[in-house]
Design a protein around this nucleic acid. Structure first.
Length: 257
DNA sequence: CCCTGATTCGC
DNA sequence: GCGAATCAGG
């Protein structure tokens, strides 16, 4: 794979957007995590909290003496790293799929590290019951009069208490396989490349899905999200003692991995 | 172990 | 310029 302008653009956006090299790599497809990092550095993009980068301080870390510690010659079968599988990538289970599209391979991990809160598009706003007149949130919500802790964020978004996510969890979106490349259907959606300081970056759907896009609403000034999503992103902290008590987990709890 | 990013260095 | 191999912290 070569670094086309588009691929570079995507790399930049994602890198600056805080995606990990791995995520970027398999989003782009056909490149390794190392390739992404290497490219990023060559592009001058660099660093973001890197685990290994707090070293130095004063003395030189005396990494490698003049002697050649590593004979680069020997290439090992590399049992450690996962198989790169450059081209014949996506091992799509499912019923016989003829789509070769090497682009993305959503295969492996459930993607837990993604900052993406997994948007639930049609999530019914069950929130802010009392709905103080102060807020103009047009929430079609009646009933419920339990006084919840609701505060108004700087931009006018409603803060939620820590347990207030209305829809339990983002409705596990059926992961679709394949495509993930530009298609007419997402033409008017906010794509990765459409992100700017002015539009809401709240992710809708999941990377790799054909219709993955971003909210795209005008941002709440000073925030990366629109007012609505600010309410989701920034949640009020309940006073100590009034916190959500019990870890509702029957036992053990769902293993997330 | 896994993950992460940084760096090196042969190509 | 590219990226695998390697390093090194979490």
């Amino acid at each position: 794979m070569s670094w086309t302008d588009e691929r570079i653009a995507t790399l930049k956006k994602m890198w600056e957007g805080g995606s990990t090299a791995s995520q970027i790599a398999d989003e782009l497809g056909g490149v390794s995590r190392n390739a992404v990092i290497g490219k990023a550095h060559r592009l001058g993009l660099k660093s973001r909290p890197s685990p290994v980068k707090s070293a130095d301080k004063k003395a030189a870390p005396a990494k490698k003496p003049a002697t050649a510690p590593k004979p680069a010659a020997a290439k090992k079968p590399a049992t450690k790293k996962a198989a790169p599988s450059p081209k014949p990538a996506p091992a799509v289970a499912q019923t016989g799929s003829a789509a070769p599209a090497p682009s993305t391979s959503p295969a492996a991990k459930p993607a837990a590290s993604a900052p993406a809160p997994a948007a639930a598009p049609a999530a019914a706003p069950v929130n802010a019951s009392g709905n103080p007149a102060a807020t103009s949130q047009p929430l079609p919500n009646k009933q419920a009069d339990t006084p919840k802790i609701v505060s108004v964020g700087p931009g006018g978004f409603l803060r939620q208490g820590p347990g207030d996510q209305q829809p339990p969890i983002p409705p596990a979106p059926p992961r679709r396989l394949v495509p993930a490349k530009p298609s007419p259907e997402i033409a008017d959606k906010t794509s990765l490349l459409d992100l700017s300081e002015k539009v809401c970056r709240w992710p809708m759907g999941h990377p790799g899905e054909p219709d993955f896009h971003f909210c795209g609403e005008a941002v709440n000034p000073g925030f990366p999200y629109c007012v609505e999503h600010c309410g989701r992103a920034y949640q009020a902290q309940l006073p100590r003692g009034a916190r959500r008590p019990p870890p509702p987990l029957p036992f053990g709890g769902p293993r997330v991995r």
